[in-house]
Design a protein around this nucleic acid. Sequence first.
RNA 1: GGGGACGUAGGUUAGCUUGGUAUACUGCCAGCCUCGGGUGCUGGAGAUCAUGGGUUCAAAUCCCAUCGUCCCCA
Length: 480
Amino acid sequence: MSKEDIGITVSKKDNFSEWYTQVVLKAKLADYAPVKGLIVLRPDGYSIWESLRGRFDKKFEKNGIKNGFLPILIPESLLGKEQKHFAGFNPEVFWVTHSGTNKIGDRLALRPTSETLAYTMYSKWIQSWRDLPLKINFWNTALRAEIKATKPFLRTSEFLWQEGHTVHATQEEAEKEVMKILEIYKKTVEEELAIPVITGKKSEKEKFVGAVYTTTMESIMPDGKALQMGTSHFLGQNFSKPFEVKFADKDNVEHFAWQTSWGISWRLIGAMIMVHGDDKGLVLPPNVAPIQVLIVPIYKNDEGKKSVLSKVEEIRKILEIKKIRVYVDDREGLSPGYKFNDGELKGIPLRIEIGPKDIEKESIVIAKRHNREKSNLDFSEIETIVTILDEIQKEMLVNAKNQANANSIDISDFVEFKSKIEKGGFFNAPWCGRVECEEKIKEETGADIRVLPFGSDDTNQKCIYCSQESVSVPVFARGY
RNA sequence: GGGGACGUAGGUUAGCUUGGUAUACUGCCAGCCUCGGGUGCUGGAGAUCAUGGGUUCAAAUCCCAUCGUCCCCA
């Protein structure tokens, strides 16, 4: 590896896939595990996850959702109880067949998702209307054997996620919950990760196996491909019936309950990398950055070192009182330039440079990561860094929105659709609502219906494929 | 589902055609020098050449098998 290779060696524009992998590895977010399709999360990567998790937990808690923990093994007999669900997941289930040298009769699945296990428990816990609603969230991992090419965070055979499972007395309440969760997801992703999303429903073909319907949030990546950012499912009574999740109502009549399930995964980290990163490496939104401010002290000799470092300490204290996460890079034997590049590779949102010249002028140099702008800031204005970080966070969302808009088009001609899909993008195209057309479009273009955005019903147009009357204008795209 | 590439030090890799005890850079360690955009010098540690078998006086190199990983396209 030459010196240049410490950093990112390909441009995001020319080789997106390679660029992405390099950022993940070189920014030390994750590394490949010795088993195909699995990755190891390193502290910088895990810290982002923890931070995101904290933001979600706060909102879940406000909504009356508590955290629990489920074991990882599910007996086949349970997993198979809801047949469509089982058929959907079976091809990618890892099975545990032995305990030590003994063969296990009812083999055990490493959970691909936990509906069947959770609802087995729920049926024990719920007897009365007084037990409802029951709202539990689980932070864990799920395992799905990926045959397709894997990619850190985006497609791995084991992934970190949360799966929430709620139970309600009425259909109306359950459906409200589905929407409430989707709103929490959208808000959190936009506010914390600075990634705009489009929310709506999945088509019948793309919905979660076992759900009545699936709501989703989708984002467009810079390479024009769509990424599913999170889903919230209305399960109706599809699971409560086979799993006997039922309760006695006030009138003492027994009813099957209404259920929801929903999840987001560390894919969100992958999305964040893709949307914000650049040729210098990772770019982190301040809200989730493990380190928000990097301070690089610059000095020529011991005397300069002393005065610079004491000033640095002063600044650090001011920032820490303001609850800003600060790291002083006082590593010996490394040049400032090295430290600048290192901080940029890791995506630290704001860098402070302070040397003898600055002490003299009573100011510091600040460099913003997201637009790489440098400017001066007086000692007396250090506290405004709180506001600056806030502005960065907002600017990143605006930039991402512009990027997403530039990648979305309204389209009503299939020939044009086919010719333009190669370059990627979100295509808003009218559709008749029939699965045959959906399948044909997928077959001929590789694009599927990512989302039927809320409010996209439209009967005044012609289906882009069959020209029959449209029912809506979904977002078509090729996906990850 | 289809196709391709690869496995040699922590990382990237040379050597393989034509068999003869492994090359460099980077990273790491120690010391010195430096420090406003990936510093320089000196010294040092680090490799059962993926695994198993075969051919041979001799295998990273040739042959067979196995395992593993990555990438691209639908």
